[in-house]
Structure formats: structure tokens, C-alpha cells
Computed example of a mutant assay.
Amino acid sequence: MDISQARVAATAVHLAPSWSTGFASGLFALLLVGARPLWKHTGHLDTAVHEGGHALMAFLFDRMFVTVWLERNQSGLTRYWGPPRGPGRLVIAAAGYTAPSLCGVGGAGLLAAGNVTAALVLAGLATVGLLLVVENGFGVLVVLVMLAFVALVGTRGSPGVQLFVACTVSWFLLFSAIRSLGILRRARRFSRSSDADMLAASTHLPAALWVAAFYLVDLYCLLVGSRLLIGG
């Protein structure tokens, strides 16, 4: 590697998004979330992060035999063995609809500080961790595609491409968290088996209150993430 190549490699670690990069990547992410034909494919990322949030909290709260399913219709399921009640169960149930927005704002924070490489490495490690607990074939395929994409961008993409992709993914997660809550509200008209209903059964607080709490968290993360990606 000559000196010029070394300088380019160094910028991959210390390259924060400009206003134009943050704005353009945000528009692209909004298209990926808002356009129905695209969402039929990209929505699997939101489901994977959602179930990954459940799985991570289950692991941290010492649950056993954590397994994840990702389905073709973008539904998902995380199963684990452990105490049926207690604070751990509440945190695990609440982690799903907040995981995409928290990951999005976390990624935005890393990118605003110029840590593009760290964001990609953490994304790769999280994807590998999810791959270890996914049980069904379609879910494995989804996670492998995600892992291949992160590896391709991280090893073949220029610093500018890596930054734009990382910004787009952060925006995508922030936007998709809001869209998923809209899907949840519509789904609850026909079924009462959502995370919000599980929390309602455990806490005796209305499920609608939990949905509102999810909205507050996700909207706050969108606000903070926007400032980091555009104004950071």
C-alpha cells in the first residue's frame, strides 16, 4: 500500500457526513421505506433488527435456548426459555419495536463522529450474532444476504460509498421503526398477540399506551438521528 492509498484508508475511519450526504442518503432511505414495491424486500431488514432486539435482551437477561424465525411475509418470532414474569420479560418484549430506532440513532452517532469503519464492523458483528440464532431457512437466507452486503461494502466500497451506505442504513432504521408501528396499529384491529398486548397483559397498562410509548421513543430517536446525520 503506497502513501496515497494509506491516506484514503485513513479517511474511512474519520469521515463524517456532510449536509448533502446526510440529506441525500435520507431521501434514498425514505424511498426504500415508503415505496411499497421496495418495502416488500427492504422490510426484512427491519424485521431482522426487531427480532434481533428481542434476542439480544433475552441473552442479556440470561434466557436459555434463544431462537429466531424470519418469515417471507416480514413477520418474525423470537422464542426463549426462562421465567414467565419479571422485569426481564418486560424489557425483552419492549425491545423489538425500539431496536431499529435505537440501532439507527446509534449508527448516526458513530457516523457523526466519523467512525464509519466502526459502524460497519458493529453491523457485521451484530449480523453474525443474529445468524447464530436464526432457525428457519428463509431467515438464514435473509441474514446471509445482509452479511454479504456489509462485507461487500466494507471491503470493496470506497470511503465515500461506505459513508453513504452507512448513513442510508441508519436513516432506514429510523424511518422503518415508524412505519412498523403503523403496521402494528393496523394489525391490532384483527389480532391481539403483539408485543404491546403482551406488555399490557403483564403490566395491566393498556396496549395503546405501550404503542404510544414506542412512538415516543422512535420519534425521539428520529429527531436525534436527523440532527446527527444532517447537522452533525
Rank of each mutant, 00 (worst) to 15 (best):
Q162R: 14
F164Q: 12
L152M: 11
N136I: 00
F164I: 11
L131S: 15
L132F: 11
G154D: 05
G137H: 11
L141D: 04
L144R: 11
R156M: 13
R156W: 10
V133H: 01
V153W: 08
V161I: 14
Q162M: 12
E135M: 01
L132R: 15
F138D: 03
G137L: 14
V153N: 10
P159V: 03
V143D: 07
A148M: 09
L147R: 11
V145P: 03
E135V: 01
L152G: 05
V142E: 03
L132I: 04
L147A: 15
V150T: 15
L147I: 10
V140E: 03
G154N: 07
G154P: 05
V134R: 00
N136T: 01
R156D: 05
S158A: 09
R156P: 00
F149H: 11
L147S: 14
V143M: 05
S158C: 03
L132C: 15
S158W: 05
R156G: 02
N136A: 02
A151L: 13
G137W: 11
A148S: 12
G160Q: 12
N136L: 01
G154A: 15
V145S: 09
G137R: 14
G139R: 07
V143L: 08
L141H: 03
F138S: 06
P159D: 03
A151H: 02
A151E: 04
F164N: 08
V134H: 00
L152A: 15
E135A: 06
L141P: 00
S158D: 05
A151F: 07
G157D: 08
L163R: 14
F164M: 12
F164A: 15
A151N: 02
G157E: 09
L141I: 11
L132G: 14
V161M: 14
V145C: 14
V134P: 00
V161S: 10
N136P: 02
F149M: 13
F138V: 08
L144S: 12
L131H: 13
V142Y: 04
L152D: 09
V133L: 01
M146E: 14
N136D: 03
F149P: 00
P159M: 04
V140F: 10
V140P: 00
V150G: 13
V134I: 04
R156L: 15
V145A: 15
R156S: 09
G139C: 10
V134E: 00
G154C: 07
F138R: 04
P159Y: 05
L147W: 13
L152P: 00
Q162I: 02
V142F: 06
Q162F: 02
V145I: 15
L132D: 07
T155I: 03
V133G: 01
A148D: 03
A148I: 04
G139D: 09
V142L: 05
V153P: 08
F138E: 02
G139N: 09
L131Q: 13
R156Y: 07
R156F: 10
G137D: 11
N136R: 01
